[in-house]
Design a protein around this nucleic acid. Structure first.
Length: 1049
RNA sequence: GCCGAGGUGGCGGAACUGGCAGACGCGCAGGAUUUAGGAUCCUGUGUCUAUUGCAGACGUGGAGGUUCGAGUCCUCUCCUCGGCACCA
């Protein structure tokens, strides 16, 4: 017998498949019963595919093959997300040009993906750095621009004052990570305070610098993105991550006039009901009012200006987490290479400076002081807050530090609430509280927070005293009438000193006596309650009735209701080389005249109704930026090709490397024809990947290469082919893209839908988030040096073995650990199955007993495999196949020895107890007449089919060469199963006494639901009668087909 | 700090709506075959007790609870991992 030769066989079929095009859909146009099976395309790194990719992509491939065998016309494309910072950085390191590098790396990827035997349609790959591709990325940019969804705004970037260059976030790190001594901008050494962020190359403290950059107004779509989540079938945790990222919160904007100035400041608050409790005001250091103060537009004392300047300077030098987030850098880059440690800490002491200004609280005309502090962020809400220390922890901390008044305006709805020091009460305390029907929850990490009903506080104090160990405890009646309580003594909180002395005399540990610190939390709460101290609002229950408050605010003209989002607009500009140039032109002359595309295309709105079908999108530009001088590159001229720059490294000046190419920059103004300049920045890689799923089905020659025009999107995106294939039926990808990529793709899809270009508004109605393969307990990464290269395993064991092994290791959404010994086991399995076909084919004559067992097992296996694959539980599907194989091997072996086969279930139990009935049945089955080998051949055939998605080469070889069936197994029909055959004839009933298993009883299915008969059978068992002897049976529990439980005294 | 996921043999992991815990595989041990090694095959393998024979007790991070019966449900508690993080 020949050994299974994976090298020869895998190569042979891979060639044949490609030859015959079995991995291509039957039809692109007019396709029916389609299944668009998409796996997140990889960034083609120079190191090539690693085993983690193999794990994920195989998971996707299995489903594709399964669907094809189930009659779907499957389209399974693949491509490369080749632009971006990964590639550029690597090219810099390797001293090569990214254009050269990408050619080699995509080649490697293609070879590797093919060697894994994945069923991709290789005729429709995309590479995002191809001009044919990014022509349309640019076209998309222009579409968004014309729809008023792109604009320019000043935004922070990391800036190295020494290198005079923009730094990507992963180039900014702590001095120890950079292995550099920190320096200031003058080159002087400074002390590492632990929160410094420096330039990777020179160790100079990084600054934040404002640059004008392009943004997409994704925030306009916040609500749509939120609503869309309701109708898509995604893992809850991913949806949740998106919801959190969007971070919608409802509240109000309230206007506070500045004392002695004509200006006023808006604040956003989710708690307008606490407006009367505002005792101070804080604005972000970057707030426009601060600037006006500094340049004396608003007058304050001179010393104040110096103080403010000093504070702003210290704040600036702190590069904090929020900036990492706002710059939208690819997460994977951060995770992989830099592992930036979190610097910000919500508990860190608040700092701030009084500005000398006051504002008027509109509700009570109170003059309240204005501070600046970095705990107020400029890019959320309005960059200003009202400080309500009684009901916001952060405001409370700030008020405490600067000794600001605290005014309570929300009353608890209950009479008594208290906090008990956990360590000072005995165990049963909480249980007793529950018994009384009082509610409670954990309070911070040191206490229980208990709420007691009206008039019950006396009873409560008694309970506490009873359960008190030794330490003190305090009760707060609504935060005011406070008491410190001991086992046998009660002090009023005003007698604090006395109480402490008493505690000391009891020998209570010091840290427990120090209750002032803990007590302070009770002055600040955000619990539901009733408004007090607020004139006409008094008595309103909040938060249920906040809308009443908002209405009142609106009628009084103090402000208005408003919804805010955490989601920020999408920063598109990258001051880099390796990306699609942003297709915009800036004309100074036009700018001087105030002209832009918008001013010259005011009739665009009218034109668009003709040109854009069903457009739901309002075409306009908002007035929050000046578009003067900006023109999109005429569509006919796309792509704006990325020139080959020898030196593509980031340069100074705050612009991308393209700014250094005069040739690239210089262009004629599309409007007036005078000398103009191209935008030198490139777009974010996430834009490339936000539409690639639309690109795959497009016809290369007819559409791809077509020169766009203003309306050509109709031909490209409204194409029939897209209608047939999209949206994607199953999107398979990593959970790490939960927010960015998946959010941006949804956004772009919704925009295209609003433009009437496509007829769906969610690109991925179904998304499966696979896990990550790890090695030696850690994520695979270059820096850890634990990357598993699939090539060597394919070489040694074959692709099918690797596929089976990675799928078998654990559930698809888990984090399986790759082990060499494990894959050897799988290799042995393949060899055994191979041997099974060689030994068994056409030679097996089975007696009826074996036929029954085999048939049952076969149908059970098909059933389990079918449902497990549908649920992405490949590991258990493969386990089931292994059980079937084991049974078939046993049949071969036993038939040679002429020994009866037992069903695997009975066999599994054999070591324990085989009951009389099972043995009787076996005797009965003995010596039944021998039958033909049909069942055996059927089993071999179906085994091949269910193995096919996991081991495509092996199954094809067996299917065509051993079983002599028609090419190809992957086009064959997935086997059906018969529910009746899958049911075993005998059921094993567990017999328990007082819940403890005593025996297992084999019973015919026909009687297994009959309580009387089963109990009769059970009572025939000697062991049971022995155990029940002399015992009084209280109850007999009977669960049909499952359990008998005798409850005895 | 907030949100989410999860703790099951030596290991990866099974266990449907509460009903035989440990499927399947790895590893390990013993045996067969072999000059030897490897490969292959057979047997065993949660822990402890018993092992001449049947067997028995305990076991899903820990503590309590509900139930005839809990890995699964409830409460607390400890730990691990992931996401977000001064979002007003």
């Amino acid at each position: 017998m020949k050994k299974y030769d994976h090298k020869r066989i895998e190569k042979k079929w891979q060639e044949r498949w490609e030859d015959k095009g079995i991995n291509r859909p039957n039809k692109m146009k007019g396709a029916q019963n389609t299944f668009y099976n998409l796996w997140m395309f990889p960034y083609p790194s120079a190191k090539g595919l690693h085993a983690g990719h193999a794990f994920a992509s195989t998971g996707s491939d299995v489903i594709g093959r399964f669907k094809r065998m189930n009659g779907k016309d499957v389209f399974q494309p693949i491509g490369y997300d080749s632009f971006g910072i990964h590639g550029e950085n690597y090219a810099i390191k390797a001293g090569k040009h990214p254009m050269e590098l990408i050619k080699a790396t995509t080649k490697t990827y293609e070879r590797q993906l093919k060697s894994l035997g994945h069923g991709y349609d290789w005729t429709r790959t995309v590479t995002t750095s191809d001009a044919d591709y990014y022509r349309w990325t640019q076209w998309l940019f222009i579409k968004l621009f014309k729809a008023g969804l792109a604009y320019r705004k000043e935004a922070d970037v990391n800036w190295c004052p020494s290198c005079k260059t923009v730094l990507a976030d992963e180039q900014v790190m702590t001095p120890s990570q950079a292995e550099k001594e920190p320096k200031n901008s003058k080159g002087e050494k400074v002390k590492d305070t632990g929160d410094l962020q420096v330039c990777e190359r020179c160790g100079t403290i990084a600054e934040r610098k404002k640059l004008n950059q392009w943004f997409f107004r994704i925030t306009e779509y916040a609500d749509k993105l939120l609503e869309g989540l309701e109708k898509i079938d995604w893992p809850e945790k991913i949806k949740l991550a998106q919801r959190n990222w969007i971070g919608r919160s409802e509240g109000a904007i309230i206007n506070f006039p500045i004392v002695g100035a004509s200006e006023s400041v808006d604040v956003f608050t989710t708690r307008p009901d606490t407006l009367y409790g505002a005792t101070f005001f804080v604005i972000s250091p970057e707030h426009p009012v601060v600037e006006k103060v500094l340049n004396s537009e608003i007058k304050v004392d001179k010393e104040k200006i110096t103080e403010l300047n000093k504070y702003i300077k210290t704040v600036k030098s702190r590069t904090s987490q929020k900036q990492v987030r706002s710059s939208h850098v690819e997460k994977s880059v951060r995770d992989d290479e830099s592992e930036i440690k979190s610097l910000s800490d919500s508990s860190k002491a608040k700092t701030g400076v009084f500005t000398g200004l006051y504002v008027i609280n509109p509700v009570n005309e109170e003059k309240i002081p204005v501070y600046i502090s970095d705990y107020v962020l400029m890019d959320y809400g309005t960059g200003a807050i009202m400080g309500v220390p009684a009901h916001d922890q952060r405001d409370y901390d700030f008020a405490n530090k600067y000794d600001l008044p605290i005014r309570k305006v929300i009353d608890f709805d209950i009479e008594t609430h208290s906090v008990v020091l956990k360590s000072s009460v005995k165990k049963g305390f909480i249980k007793d509280v529950e018994k009384k029907g009082w509610s409670w929850k954990k309070y911070k990490d040191w206490g229980y927070y208990v709420v007691v009903g009206q008039g019950e506080s006396g009873e409560y104090i008694k309970l506490v005293q009873d359960k008190l160990k030794n330490g003190p405890w305090y009760v707060h009646t609504d935060g005011e009438a406070k008491k410190v309580i001991f086992k046998s003594k009660i002090f009023d909180f005003k007698e604090n000193a006395k109480a402490k002395k008493y505690a000391e005399s009891l020998g209570i540990p010091k840290e427990q006596i120090d209750w002032d610190d803990k007590d302070k939390y009770m002055f600040c709460h955000d619990n539901p309650g009733t408004i007090i101290n607020s004139d006409e609002w008094n008595g309103i229950k909040v938060p249920q009735n906040i809308d009443k408050v908002v209405k009142s605010i609106e009628t009084k003209g103090w402000g208005s209701g408003k919804t805010s989002y955490h989601l920020r607009d999408w920063l598109i500009s990258r001051q880099r080389y390796w990306g699609p140039p942003i297709p915009m032109i800036y004309c100074e002359k036009c700018a001087g005249l105030g002209k832009s595309w918008f001013t010259e295309n005011s009739k665009y709105e009218n034109r668009s109704t003709k040109q854009i079908r069903n457009s739901k999108l309002e075409i306009r530009n908002s007035d929050d930026w000046s578009s003067a001088g900006w023109w999109p590159v005429p569509e006919e001229e796309l792509p704006v090709e990325l020139p080959f720059l020898k030196d593509f490294k980031p340069k100074g000046g705050g612009r991308g490397p393209l700014a250094d190419s005069k040739e690239f920059l210089s262009v004629k103004c599309p409007s007036c024809g005078s000398k103009a300049e191209r935008e030198p920045d490139v777009s974010d890689t996430f834009l490339d990947s936000a539409w690639y799923f639309l690109a795959y089905p497009l016809q290369r020659d007819k559409i791809w290469k077509k020169v766009p025009s203003e309306t050509s999107g109709q031909d490209a995106f409204s194409n029939k082919i897209i209608e047939f294939w999209l949206p994607v039926d199953l999107y398979f990808g990593g959970a790490e893209h939960a927010v960015l990529h998946l959010m941006y793709s949804r956004f772009v899809t919704k925009v295209l839908n609003d433009l009437g270009l496509i007829d769906f508004d969610e690109p991925f109605p179904k998304f499966f988030a696979h896990g990550l393969m790890i090695k030696d307990g850690a994520k695979m990464s270059k820096s850890r040096g634990n990357v598993v290269n699939p090539d060597e395993y394919i070489e040694k064991y074959g692709a099918d073995t690797l596929r089976l092994y990675t799928m078998f290791m654990g559930p698809m959404d888990g984090y399986p650990d790759f082990r060499d010994t494990g894959i050897e086991g799988m290799s042995r399995f393949i060899d055994r199955v191979w041997k099974l076909y060689q030994d068994g084919k056409g030679k097996m004559i089975l007696e009826k007993h074996s036929v029954d067992i085999l048939l049952t097992k076969l149908h059970q296996t098909i059933k389990k495999c079918t449902s497990d694959i549908q649920g992405y539980k490949y590991n258990t599907a493969i386990a089931a196949i292994m059980e079937l194989v084991n049974l078939m091997r046993e049949i071969i072996e036993k038939s040679q020895k002429q020994v009866r086969v037992s069903s695997t279930k009975a066999k599994a139990r054999a070591g324990r107890q085989i009951t009389k009935s099972v043995q009787d049945d076996k005797a009965y089955l003995k010596n039944l007449p021998a039958l033909s080998n049909d069942t055996w051949n059927e089993a071999l055939e179906k085994l091949t089919l269910i193995l096919a998605p996991f081991a495509p080469h092996f199954s094809e070889e067996v299917w065509c060469e051993v079983l002599k069936k028609d090419f190809s197994v992957h086009k064959a029909k997935w086997p059906a199963y018969d529910e009746e055959i899958a049911e075993e004839e005998k059921v094993t009933i567990a017999v328990q006494i007082n819940g403890k298993l005593r025996i297992l009883l084999g019973v015919k299915r026909s009687v297994a639901s009959d309580k009387k008969k089963v109990l009769e059978l059970v009572k025939e068992e000697e062991k049971i009668t022995d155990l029940l002897n002399n015992k009084e049976i209280e109850r007999e529990i009977f669960i049909p087909e499952k359990i008998v439980n005798f409850v005895v005294k």
